[in-house]
Nucleic acid binder design. Structure first.
Lengths: 245, 245
DNA sequence: CCGGGCGTTTGATCCTGCTCAAAGCGCGCC
DNA sequence: GGCGCGCTTTGAGCAGGATCAAACGCCCGG
């Protein structure tokens, strides 16, 4: 069951999520950091839990933005495409991550699962009412949005100014940092996305992604464990190659 | 007085700012859209007004994030750089725009004026208290942050997947849309940024920026008015060349 | 009115990463 | 356990944009 394996891999929690992985229950939303138990229950009462398959779409650009979501299990890609099909992946979301907030009436990007996934879905209107009644959640969400903006800035720097090797090195380090520290050295780092998705995240082609990974492998910086896992052998070298901002 | 001229050019208001330009007074902050007159006065009482010169730095990456700002006059660039000096400009800010919000304790990017500028500065702690007491402002700010994220997404698509011509065409159209509609056809569009800054925004080099602008000019799509203004002659063609998302 | 400096334009050449092509291989299905 | 499809790797050649270099021109100060 490879999909389950990588799904578990991705239950590894982000740094700012306090509680350990209990199969990524809803109380571990990033937005719940600001809430006491009673408020958490109130919020959870508003949620619809959804189980999604692999490569299932949550929403597409242009869809009316009726819901917001919180990922609790699995991994999701968020992307935006040109009319001719060229695609830019904006980010990969992991459990705890929040998505779907829009300034206007419709979604401005696509969201699709990479693995099987579970999300909690909220009616946008209901959620906004909850925010009005719970300002500390609104502030927490503001902090999350600021954090997303800072990540977007790093990604813009990667896309606009980094070389292919720097992009891949940065991508691997990001993924490593966001996955649980318990996996390092022991387990290899899971790559639930295809080469095509790595390419669309880094602004490269699949061939270049493959070649760069190959070069890192022959340079003993990483070890490829099948096509969808990597073990980092030389952290310092990878850091150096990433062109640390 | 070229700097004053382009400063006025840039007082042209954004679409979502209701009131017309009265030399960009503080009541026209984007965040003020959510406030009644009494709340506006309360907010303004917390502000320090600053007058800034050309190419003056508001803050740099790594600086402790002690303040947030609202631009009221002039133009500002927000950027992020690598250790070796490669720079990516994340965006150009116009009057009404808000900046400086951070998820952590320090700024993650640089902000610098392009022209002479005026800003209202708030102590971060004071401002956060105000947000707690005025949830509708927090929600307004959340909407602004979402809008910034959507803009960042468009920029990532530009940097990762668009050709040189598409990047420049998109840049010109963005700038046109954000400047006041009253300038179109009549006045040319002011470019308060240098070629180097356009290059750092579009992820190109100054030579490529210059060449692409030259090609657009010989194709009668635009007309260059000196080096720091452009008149759009053929909107439809420019739109087509931008690879509309 | 002239001279200097910086930002911009233009030209020639180079190189990184893309395109096109084909072989390899791992996974899932039967 | 074997087969076939789709993802990945590898190779050869190409091109878009970068780099290096030099001329232009605008703005400002003297």
């Amino acid at each position: 069951m490879t999909s389950t394996a990588s799904l578990h891999e991705f239950c590894a929690r982000r740094g700012d999520v306090a509680t350990p992985c209990r199969h990524c229950g809803a109380r571990e939303f990033n937005i719940c950091q600001a809430l006491d138990a009673a408020q958490q229950d109130k919020l959870l009462a508003l949620a619809t839990r959804l189980q999604l398959g692999k490569r299932e779409r949550l929403f597409a650009a242009g869809d009316p933005a009726r819901h917001v979501y919180n990922l609790t299990e699995g991994a999701v890609s968020v992307s935006r495409s040109l009319a001719d099909g060229r695609r830019q992946i904006l980010g990969f979301l992991l459990p705890g991550d929040f998505l779907g907030l829009e300034p206007g009436e419709s979604h401005h990007c696509d969201a699709e699962t990479l693995t099987e996934a579970k999300v909690c879905r909220f009616e946008r209107t209901t959620f906004e009412t909850f925010l009005q009644d719970n300002p500390e959640v609104a502030l927490r969400l503001l902090r999350i949005a600021s954090s997303d903006l800072a990540q977007a800035a790093r990604h813009e720097l990667l896309l606009g100014r980094k070389t292919a090797v720097e992009r891949i090195a940065t991508f691997l380090l990001d993924l490593r940092d966001r996955s649980g520290a318990r996996h390092l050295r022991t387990h290899p780092l899971a790559l639930p996305m295809t080469r095509s998705e790595i390419a669309d995240y880094t602004g490269l082609t699949i061939e270049t992604v493959s070649r760069v990974l190959g070069r890192l492998r022959s340079g003993k910086v990483i070890e490829l464990v099948g096509a969808s896992a990597v073990r980092v052998l030389d952290d310092e070298e990878l850091e150096r190659l990433s062109g640390a901002s």
